[in-house]
Simulated assay, not measured.
Amino acid sequence: MIDAHGLRKTFTTRGRRGAIQTVEAVRGVDLAVETGEIFGVLGPNGAGKTTTIRMLATLIAPDAGTATVAGHDLLTEPGRIRARLGYVSQAGGVEENTTPRAQIMMAARVHGLARASEATADVLDRFDLSEVADRPARTLSGGQRRRVAIALGLVHSPPLLFLDEPTTGLDPQNRANLWNRIRELRERGTSVLLSTHYLDEADALCDRLAIIDHGLVVAQGTPSELKREVSGDVVTLRVGDPEPAAEKLKPYARETRVDDEVLRVYVDDGERALPAMLRVLEEHGLGLTSISLERSTLDDVFLAKTGRSLRDTGAAA
């Protein structure tokens, strides 16, 4: 659905004293998004996520690089891309003094839908907005306004939807509700490109993701693959005699560490390794007091790839 190579974008601004400043927002991004998946772009504020999405949405032209989006060339067929694309910005694009129905109807007509009224009613129903469809948007909750924004991007049934920081500012209940809506889009066959700086959001929603920092992709893959690549899982055991236990469990481990009666075993896939490890301990009569399985996080991946925690940037949740 998206195949991008070497995308670059530099902005030139003028400082307070008139000095020209050059900012390399995107410095060579490669992305490959498959049909029918939720693909995440994870990174702190200012990493280049929004600039990358705006280039792929044909809203700004790249300085370098190539891409095909929804089967069309980014540089030579921007109009064809827009016809097959839904785009929801961070701001959302909802006009506060107009009703959701009127705004969505206008979007349907702009896209040339022959049955604009039916398409509007359908998308209002899909996003549970029918009861508030004729109220001014300023009277809606934050979660309802975000659902209106996504409905605006979906009224023409595009195969590809861009969501730029879709849950920023929402409370936990509305975030969870919107996550379910995004999953439903995937189930209907819509491909979703999602930018976020929330670790839990990327982990919960994305089939695959790219981690972007300072305008570069520093890691790409499924959340599970990325976490296993960096540190795998940690099985923590309390045993009476940890040294012999560590020796017996070495075939399952990347690494073992002993601290008093606590044995930490670093493994690639804790769920698969745990039953076999328990059998080995039982067979050799090594008494086990407690056991726990801890998974690495996407923040561990970000730390390994960039040298700092995403949480330290103030962006993650």
Rank of each mutant, 00 (worst) to 15 (best):
G169S: 09
M1R: 04
E95T: 13
A83D: 11
V33G: 09
V155T: 11
G287L: 11
L298E: 07
V41C: 10
V258H: 07
Q173K: 13
R138Q: 13
F302L: 09
L178M: 10
R135C: 01
V230N: 05
A204T: 15
A202W: 09
K9S: 03
E225F: 10
G153A: 05
G240R: 11
G153W: 08
H284F: 10
D207T: 13
T196F: 12
I60N: 03
L288V: 12
L140N: 04
D164L: 05
E243A: 15
R295D: 08
L161K: 10
L124H: 01
V33Y: 10
A47G: 12
V148M: 07
L288I: 12
E271F: 13
R254T: 07
I2Y: 12
D241Q: 15
I60D: 02
L249D: 00
D203M: 11
D260W: 09
I38H: 09
R16T: 09
V301S: 07
Q220G: 00
A246P: 01
T289N: 01
E294W: 04
E282A: 15
G285L: 11
E261H: 12
R279K: 14
R8H: 14
V155P: 06
E201N: 06
A137D: 00
G112K: 04
Q90M: 01
S290L: 00
R54K: 13
L113P: 06
G143I: 03
L205E: 11
Q21V: 14
T196D: 10
A83L: 04
A317L: 14
L281H: 05
R228K: 14
L293E: 09
L205K: 08
T289V: 11
E201I: 03
A119V: 08
N177T: 14
L310I: 15
A133S: 07
G15Y: 00
M105K: 02
A219F: 06
E131H: 13
P136L: 03
G93H: 02
L170E: 08
L160P: 06
Q173M: 10
C206F: 14
V33S: 11
S89Q: 04
V265H: 04
E282L: 11
R27G: 07
E118A: 15
T236H: 07
E243S: 12
R84W: 02
Q21P: 00
E165M: 08
A32V: 15
N180D: 14
V230Y: 10
H156D: 07
P166T: 02
A64V: 10
P172L: 05
I212N: 10
V262L: 10
R257I: 02
E77V: 03
E261F: 04
T12A: 11
L274G: 05
D203C: 07
R183V: 11
M1F: 12
V262G: 00
S296F: 15
K9A: 01
D164Y: 03
